[in-house]
Design a protein around this nucleic acid. Structure first.
Lengths: 198, 198
DNA sequence: GTCAAAATGCCACAGTGTGGCGTTTGCTTC
DNA sequence: GAAGCAAACGCCACACTGTGGCATTTTGAC
């Protein structure tokens, strides 16, 4: 990430440790026994924290499972704020995503595919994921121009769709270095898709 | 709807009545007191059915609130099965949607906007709605061609995005006759959106 | 060392969704 | 029309998620 200066105080470091332990263990346990079928208590016992503490760190059971996804989009918005917007907005979106992917660390590339597999298996998790994605779309729109502009809304929706298609292509193999290629292919196909005939 | 021959037996009619009463009353009550803030029990007491009976008719609290949305997409798939697919697939999608809208009755045009307003207010409902939409997208893709085809996936995502934009434009006024116009405008804007510049 | 603030744990509660089981109600057959 | 059968229903109890109150421990500051 960009601006994650290591917390000075011992208290903050401790709190961060339990947060990370929850995120990490959540992926392990949910990945092994399924998200819907594993009670939250199983995670709490494994990390040895009370329910109260958990809900002070995460809004819901889904939240802790989706940290990798949220981190990606959070970074994406940061990148978007930094970059100069010029030329075709679809290219701006694609390049911002490529930059974002470049900034993700090794640990993220291990957690992210695991998260996607959880999302595939659990409708509840998928719903949460889609909902979060919708919020991000609104933010992206606000950063790219006039939110009331119909074409802009369509464009952002389409870019996110291309991103999801790229993920679908990438997920089976999950080779870290291939994701940018999948993204480029998906964005390159956007034009042809509109002209697709039966 | 198309193939809804009125149920012959008394038992089926009775069951249908409670189903409809639940759907109708749900929109009233949730619309008045909010979806998240209204317990399911309030609905159950109003319609005078037990929780057990409710969950035999609907999968969840969200389910009963989204019946109008589900009915739309169900009809849309039916229309898609009936129509001949030729020419640009984006046009096929748009025309199928226009046909679907034409088939909806007056009652639906009263419930549907009310449902959309509920979805706007409740993240949980929105998540369920988006999840259902994703399932429909897969069905549509299967009906339009090769599910593995990247361009096809993109196209369907884009068409659904256009539909949602049409709804956003329509929702404030909600005049029944204007929805087709909103749909045409949104689909007409698709081409320009890809070429949008900063 | 002391005191204030923050984080935690424990307890109780509301709300959603599921399963078992006995009872009612409508359908069928004689 | 009466008996038998199956579907729908209501009641009860339970598991799971998420929230609020409150006492306790831990940490940082003076």
């Amino acid at each position: 990430m960009t601006t994650s200066g290591p917390p000075a105080t011992l208290r903050e470091r401790k709190k961060l440790r339990t947060r990370q332990a929850l995120e990490e263990t959540a992926l392990e346990i949910f990945g092994e026994h399924g998200f819907d079928t594993t009670p939250l208590d199983t995670l709490l016992e494994a990390v040895e924290v009370s329910r109260r503490t958990f809900f002070r760190n995460f809004r819901s059971k889904e939240d802790v499972a989706l940290t990798a996804v949220k981190r990606l989009w959070s970074e994406f918005l940061d990148v978007l704020d930094e970059t100069a917007k010029s030329g075709p907005l679809a290219d701006v979106f694609r390049d911002a995503m490529l930059t974002t992917l470049d900034r993700m660390d090794e640990d993220w590339y291990r957690r992210f595919p695991a998260t996607l597999r959880l999302v595939e298996e659990s409708p509840a998790l998928d719903g949460h994921s889609l909902r979060h994605c919708a919020e991000i779309k609104d933010e992206v729109i606000r950063r790219l121009g006039d939110p009331g502009r119909l074409e802009l809304r369509l464009l952002v929706e389409f870019c996110v769709a291309a991103w999801h298609c790229a993920l679908d292509e990438w997920l089976p193999g999950c080779a870290t270095g291939e994701l940018p290629g999948c993204v480029r292919r998906a964005f390159a196909a956007m034009d042809a898709s509109l002209r697709l005939e039966a």
